[in-house]
Computed example of a mutant assay.
Amino acid sequence: MIRIGVNLAVGLPHAPGGNVIDELVEHGRSVAAAGVRTVWLPQGYDHDTLTAYAAIARDVPDVELGASVVVVQPRHPRVLAAQAQTVQAASHGRLTLGLGVSHPGLLDVYDIPFARPVDALRRHLDVLLPILAGERVPGSSGPGSSPDETSVNGATPPVPVLLGALGPAMLRLAGERTSGTITFLAGPRTIGEHVVPLLTAAAESAGRPRPRVVAGLPVAVTADPDRVRAEVAAAYRALAALPSYRTSLDREGFAGLGDIVIAGDEDEVAAELQRYADLGATDALVSRVGNTEERNRTLHLLGKLSSGAASAPRSP
């Protein structure tokens, strides 16, 4: 069975006057109590994912903490390496660091152009990956260049890195340099005929282990799948216009993002998740959608499925 993870950012209560970190901790506790062994947290414009994980790690033990994903352009790779190693130490080795490059127009708030994103990520990895591996950054010299000066005590094992990748060039980079990819809103055809073959071939050519393929999907155990799909289509409408997601939707033959939702009763949802596993996905990153009762039913099912899920590969 596919390994199950839950998106902590979806379904937060956001109570008036509440504290988002307290809410994330409570959400993480409920997911872990249900039996799910991986949580994921995206990086937005508000709370900082890695800082949040340093807090969550102490209150939610024994679950993998996946960042899905941190956009690299606003962060110097040495700063990001320090943040990641700090969380790795706080969590005693449970962090998986997902990295991405955002989309055209979404970096404007940082006054950063969206230019040559694959090259930007490659340059970032040139500095970040050696530091995470405890090695000297090629060509670096002076203070702060020695591995002894950039390591964080207790931050072992090395932090696994995944890339948010859908395009061919980004998938090749992920396979060649990292442990795999995190996709979002990529349907079965995209996973099975595009992501898995390109990523696997790149990893094999680079002599790397089988890559991890994390499929980010909206999921609901519900008696009214049409309503849930319509709600998701409305909520995610702006995403459907972004080029990378539009390409994936067109590849699937989907009219809108509602078509990608996995929705139905327990057996139907389990069968669809297994379909992704059969196509080569190692993980499902589940965003629970629907009303409160439906999200609770979904979490209950995910916990049951997780009890029989094999561990996903974790290579640095």
Rank of each mutant, 00 (worst) to 15 (best):
residue 47 H to C: 10
residue 55 A to N: 06
residue 88 Q to K: 14
residue 99 L to T: 00
residue 27 H to K: 06
residue 73 Q to E: 11
residue 92 H to A: 15
residue 90 A to V: 15
residue 92 H to T: 15
residue 67 A to H: 09
residue 78 R to Q: 12
residue 66 G to I: 01
residue 54 A to T: 13
residue 84 A to H: 00
residue 32 A to D: 07
residue 98 G to D: 05
residue 80 L to C: 03
residue 52 A to I: 02
residue 96 T to I: 11
residue 35 G to Q: 08
residue 100 G to T: 07
residue 56 I to Q: 04
residue 21 I to M: 06
residue 26 E to C: 04
residue 39 V to L: 10
residue 59 D to G: 00
residue 19 N to A: 13
residue 41 L to W: 10
residue 20 V to K: 04
residue 76 H to I: 14
residue 23 E to D: 03
residue 67 A to R: 08
residue 101 V to I: 12
residue 49 T to R: 12
residue 28 G to E: 04
residue 19 N to S: 13
residue 69 V to A: 05
residue 19 N to I: 11
residue 67 A to G: 07
residue 41 L to Q: 00
residue 52 A to H: 09
residue 66 G to T: 06
residue 24 L to N: 04
residue 41 L to A: 03
residue 44 G to C: 10
residue 57 A to P: 01
residue 36 V to Y: 02
residue 49 T to K: 11
residue 23 E to Y: 00
residue 32 A to M: 07
residue 81 A to Q: 13
residue 44 G to W: 11
residue 84 A to T: 01
residue 31 V to T: 05
residue 20 V to T: 12
residue 21 I to D: 04
residue 80 L to F: 07
residue 45 Y to C: 13
residue 57 A to C: 06
residue 101 V to T: 11
residue 64 E to I: 05
residue 72 V to T: 14
residue 83 Q to N: 13
residue 29 R to E: 06
residue 60 V to N: 02
residue 85 Q to C: 03
residue 98 G to L: 08
residue 44 G to K: 12
residue 37 R to Y: 07
residue 42 P to E: 04
residue 59 D to T: 02
residue 28 G to K: 02
residue 79 V to S: 15
residue 72 V to D: 11
residue 93 G to P: 14
residue 101 V to D: 09
residue 56 I to G: 00
residue 56 I to C: 03
residue 70 V to E: 04
residue 97 L to D: 05
residue 48 D to T: 15
residue 96 T to Y: 07
residue 61 P to Q: 10
residue 50 L to E: 06
residue 38 T to F: 08
residue 44 G to H: 11
residue 85 Q to D: 03
residue 57 A to D: 01
residue 19 N to T: 13
residue 65 L to Y: 00
residue 37 R to S: 09
residue 70 V to R: 10
residue 23 E to I: 06
residue 91 S to T: 14
residue 44 G to D: 12
residue 92 H to M: 14
residue 71 V to Q: 03
residue 75 R to P: 10
residue 20 V to S: 08
residue 50 L to N: 05
residue 71 V to T: 13
residue 22 D to W: 08
residue 87 V to P: 11
residue 55 A to I: 14
residue 90 A to I: 15
residue 25 V to H: 01
residue 56 I to K: 04
residue 90 A to E: 15
residue 63 V to P: 00
residue 49 T to N: 11
residue 68 S to G: 10
residue 97 L to E: 01
residue 81 A to C: 14
residue 73 Q to L: 07
residue 35 G to S: 07
residue 28 G to W: 05
residue 26 E to W: 08
residue 85 Q to S: 14
residue 77 P to A: 12
residue 47 H to I: 15
residue 93 G to T: 15
residue 34 A to D: 13
residue 70 V to A: 14
residue 56 I to E: 01
residue 33 A to F: 12
residue 66 G to P: 03
residue 77 P to R: 13
residue 78 R to Y: 11
residue 65 L to T: 03
residue 68 S to K: 05
residue 79 V to I: 15
residue 49 T to I: 00
residue 25 V to D: 01
residue 78 R to C: 10
residue 34 A to H: 13
